[in-house]
Nucleic acid binder design. Sequence first.
DNA 1: TTGACAACATACTGGGTAGTATGTTCCCTC
DNA 2: GAGGGAACATACTACCCAGTATGTTGTCAA
Lengths: 263, 263
Amino acid sequence: MSPARSSPERVPARDGQMGSAEPADAHADDGTPQALHVVDPDSSQGAILDAAAECFRDYGFAAASIDDVARALNATKGRIYHHFRSKTDLFFAVYRRGMALNFAAVEPYSAGPSAGEKPLDRLTRMAIAHAIVLMAQMPYQRVLAQGVHMHQTGATTAAQRETLADLIQLRGRYEKMFRDAIADLVAAHALDVDDVPLATRSFLAVLNGSVYWYAPQQDDVAREQIELAIKQVTFALQGLGVNPPHKIFDAWSSDQTSPNTSD
Amino acid sequence: MSPARSSPERVPARDGQMGSAEPADAHADDGTPQALHVVDPDSSQGAILDAAAECFRDYGFAAASIDDVARALNATKGRIYHHFRSKTDLFFAVYRRGMALNFAAVEPYSAGPSAGEKPLDRLTRMAIAHAIVLMAQMPYQRVLAQGVHMHQTGATTAAQRETLADLIQLRGRYEKMFRDAIADLVAAHALDVDDVPLATRSFLAVLNGSVYWYAPQQDDVAREQIELAIKQVTFALQGLGVNPPHKIFDAWSSDQTSPNTSD
DNA sequence: TTGACAACATACTGGGTAGTATGTTCCCTC
DNA sequence: GAGGGAACATACTACCCAGTATGTTGTCAA
């Protein structure tokens, strides 16, 4: 139903590359899908992204206005439009940075140097890292959830839809890390699930849950997050049908930054 | 940050009851929090709710316009504003109906007549019913998720915020059914979790996951939904630390409408 | 048949917002 | 020290959309 909606297709002309007189060299659009830290966090653009992430989290993409973001920055629209071509582009940049934060947190444990590592330990470390970065970077994570939703609806122009597909693919790669880790467990006969994709979704659903209800309670936020993460990971691993390796939990609790990878 | 936002508080005058010259007797606002089927599904209002649920699902509350809903109905705004006072009220009605669908699906298994029933069987039936109604009534379920999110942001006027609080409380009652069922398992020493609220959230997170990815694949949709639900419930129960009762699954699979409550 | 009212459709208004066009300031370079 | 451009702020426009005011049609009762 509603095949055309209101605006059929914005900017019918000058589509495709549209690279004429860009105001700044920000948001490099070279076709490098692997590029992660696109924007320097300490730059002015980084501050814009942080403010935008909070606004998108609080009001949602559609309801948050550019003026809201500018107000959160103690600035005006001019500053934002100097760095980002449109509201959608700003959203994409926030999404990209959110995915970069996730990859930076989890990827080290996904492809660790210790090839002889137990598959269960690897999945456990990845899960804890994921659960923690979720709580530590809440605004960005909420934006990620919105981005997935936007993909199914209408994402303005064709060029932007293409960019969104890239971002969704980025998320697909991220989830694939977990799917592969779970599949490794199945291959090692350490686990018996018939539907790995579904199991992966349920696994991540447990860990992602905190995005919608977590708010810091205790003083020691870092420890609180670790404890919550351990509970969630315990639930998720049990859901898969395996007993959680408490040794990993203890190692993580004692060293909050990077748990020792000793067996 | 951003303490005031754009519109400080819509409709500063005539707040509170604002009951003057209602166009129709629709949307009875008597203070009955227990009322579930507020709107007759086969009426004109029911058709509006269905269309609104699809639009809110597709575009989100903020991005979906009243004209979009009207277009989906092959009608105009007049029809909608004749039955609902505002866009927010329409959203609330959709939310209310979504909760009614959930209660109607799960409540029969929550307070069944068989008091001697095993706690695990009860939770299992509730979980399956919840997972199935989620897939069967997708548009409404997506609206429910949005409603929870709206509660944390700004919900227009003070009177509407009050109504939203009612709806959130309705959802709280719904989740409490599951929390109580899990707490019963703990009390019966059939389960050992230290954090029941967190376990409940993880439990529901697994079941709710399908809202974001489920799309009918096979021809026999009802059977497909049952099979998916069983897989999800298996994961969720294992996450709690209990072995799923396959007897219940088999009974549900053989009789899709209402599983026999025999021992 | 004639009110009268429900159930819409049509036409219009006001406010909010994305995006643009144009200034202004500061810094850096030559 | 002059010029030039990056990094903003200011001012403005065009448009979308929630909400309203009013017109039209059908139906049902008296």
